[in-house]
């Protein structure tokens, strides 16, 4: 199982801060994961309608869209950061 965690408006649109999922065999990269979540249900469609606005961290490290998603571990999905 892969743990997904969501932040800021991604969390609000998903209606949860985290969940565990079993990835389909054809989800290999961060970009694949975002497309899969967008197609999975209405909440995902709202949260991931614009993949260009989503950033990801895989097991604690910032990841580009082409980065490989592990079958277990943690992927965080969130908008561009706005601290400071």
């Amino acid at each position: 199982m892969l743990k997904l965690s969501y932040f800021a408006w991604v969390r609000e649109r998903m209606g949860t801060g985290e969940e565990s999922v079993s990835l389909p065999d054809d989800v290999h990269t961060v970009a694949d994961l975002i497309l899969w979540l967008a197609a999975r249900n209405d909440a995902g469609a709202r949260a991931f309608a614009e993949p260009m606005r989503i950033r990801a961290a895989v097991d604690g490290h910032m990841a580009v869209p082409g980065a490989v998603v592990p079958r277990s571990g943690e992927v965080a999905l969130f908008p561009p950061v706005t601290g400071g």
């Binding site: 932040f7 800021a8 965080a76 950061v81 601290g83």
Partner: peptide, 19 residues
């Protein structure tokens, strides 16, 4: 750094700050 700002205003608006 992983921080995200959300603003709440007196007129009821709630807005996530854009980068």
């Amino acid at each position: 750094v992983m921080l995200w700002k959300r603003e709440t205003f007196g007129d009821g608006r709630v807005v996530w700050v854009e980068q």
